[in-house]
Computed example of a mutant assay.
Amino acid sequence: MMNVDINEELPIIVYDNQCYLCVKFAKMIEFLSRGSFTMIGHYSDFGIKLRKTLGESATEMFWLIDKKTAYGGRAALLPLLKAIITTKHVKSSNTKVDVQCEQDCKTVKAVFIRSASLFSNSKKIDL
C-alpha cells in the first residue's frame, strides 16, 4: 500500500508538527527511544506523502509505522511501547522533532482536545 520508500527509515513516528502537545509527545518518544525512530511531521514534505497513503484521517492521530503495519492513535500505544523496548538503539538520521506550532495550541482547551483525540481515534493499516 505504501508508495513512499520507507524501508530505510523504520520504525517511523508521524506526528502533528503544528501542535504544541503533539510535539511534546514526539519529543518524549524521541527521548525514550534514544533517537532510534524516524520522526516525521504531518506537515513536512515526507509527512505529506505519507498522509496520502494513510488516508483522510491521517492528521487526526499520531502514527507508528513498522515493516508490516501502520498503527494510528490508540491502536499505536501498545506497539509503540513494544517498539521502544525492543528496537535496537541505533541513531536514526531523521530523529530531530520538527516544531512549527503556528496555532493557538497551548491553551487548556487545545490540550484537552488533543489528549482526548489520542484515545478516541484508532486505526490500523496492513502494509
Rank of each mutant, 00 (worst) to 15 (best):
residue 2 M to E: 04
residue 2 M to N: 07
residue 4 V to A: 10
residue 5 D to K: 11
residue 6 I to Y: 06
residue 7 N to A: 10
residue 8 E to S: 15
residue 10 L to T: 10
residue 10 L to W: 11
residue 12 I to N: 04
residue 13 I to G: 01
residue 14 V to Y: 00
residue 16 D to M: 05
residue 16 D to Y: 00
residue 18 Q to W: 09
residue 19 C to V: 05
residue 20 Y to C: 12
residue 20 Y to T: 13
residue 21 L to F: 08
residue 22 C to W: 00
residue 24 K to Y: 01
residue 26 A to I: 09
residue 26 A to T: 09
residue 27 K to A: 02
residue 27 K to Y: 00
residue 30 E to R: 14
residue 30 E to L: 11
residue 31 F to Y: 15
residue 31 F to D: 10
residue 32 L to C: 05
residue 32 L to W: 04
residue 33 S to Q: 03
residue 34 R to V: 08
residue 35 G to A: 10
residue 37 F to G: 03
residue 37 F to D: 07
residue 38 T to R: 09
residue 38 T to Y: 08
residue 40 I to N: 03
residue 41 G to T: 01
residue 41 G to M: 03
residue 41 G to P: 03
residue 42 H to N: 15
residue 43 Y to D: 06
residue 43 Y to S: 08
residue 44 S to V: 05
residue 46 F to S: 12
residue 48 I to D: 13
residue 48 I to S: 11
residue 50 L to Q: 02
residue 52 K to Q: 14
residue 53 T to W: 01
residue 53 T to R: 00
residue 54 L to R: 04
residue 54 L to V: 08
residue 54 L to Q: 04
residue 56 E to P: 08
residue 56 E to S: 14
residue 57 S to D: 12
residue 58 A to C: 09
residue 58 A to G: 03
residue 59 T to L: 13
residue 60 E to F: 06
residue 61 M to E: 12
residue 61 M to I: 04
residue 61 M to L: 11
residue 62 F to D: 03
residue 63 W to D: 02
residue 63 W to G: 00
residue 64 L to A: 06
residue 64 L to R: 05
residue 65 I to K: 03
residue 65 I to C: 02
residue 66 D to H: 04
residue 66 D to C: 07
residue 67 K to C: 07
residue 68 K to C: 12
residue 69 T to F: 11
residue 69 T to E: 12
residue 72 G to F: 05
residue 72 G to D: 06
residue 73 G to M: 11
residue 73 G to W: 06
residue 73 G to Y: 09
residue 74 R to Y: 14
residue 75 A to K: 15
residue 76 A to K: 02
residue 77 L to V: 04
residue 77 L to T: 02
residue 78 L to G: 01
residue 78 L to F: 13
residue 78 L to C: 06
residue 79 P to A: 11
residue 82 K to T: 11
residue 84 I to E: 04
residue 84 I to A: 07
residue 86 T to C: 09
residue 87 T to C: 04
residue 90 V to Q: 15
residue 91 K to F: 08
residue 92 S to V: 03
residue 93 S to I: 11
residue 94 N to F: 13
residue 95 T to M: 12
residue 95 T to N: 14
residue 96 K to L: 05
residue 99 V to N: 15
residue 99 V to G: 01
residue 99 V to Q: 10
residue 100 Q to P: 00
residue 103 Q to T: 14
residue 103 Q to H: 13
residue 107 T to G: 06
residue 110 A to V: 06
residue 110 A to L: 10
residue 112 F to Y: 14
residue 113 I to W: 03
residue 115 S to A: 15
residue 116 A to Y: 08
residue 116 A to W: 07
residue 116 A to Q: 09
residue 117 S to L: 09
residue 118 L to N: 04
residue 118 L to G: 00
residue 119 F to Y: 12
residue 120 S to N: 08
residue 121 N to Y: 13
residue 121 N to H: 15
residue 124 K to R: 15
residue 125 I to W: 00
residue 125 I to E: 04
residue 125 I to S: 01
residue 126 D to T: 15
residue 127 L to R: 09
residue 127 L to F: 15
residue 127 L to Y: 10
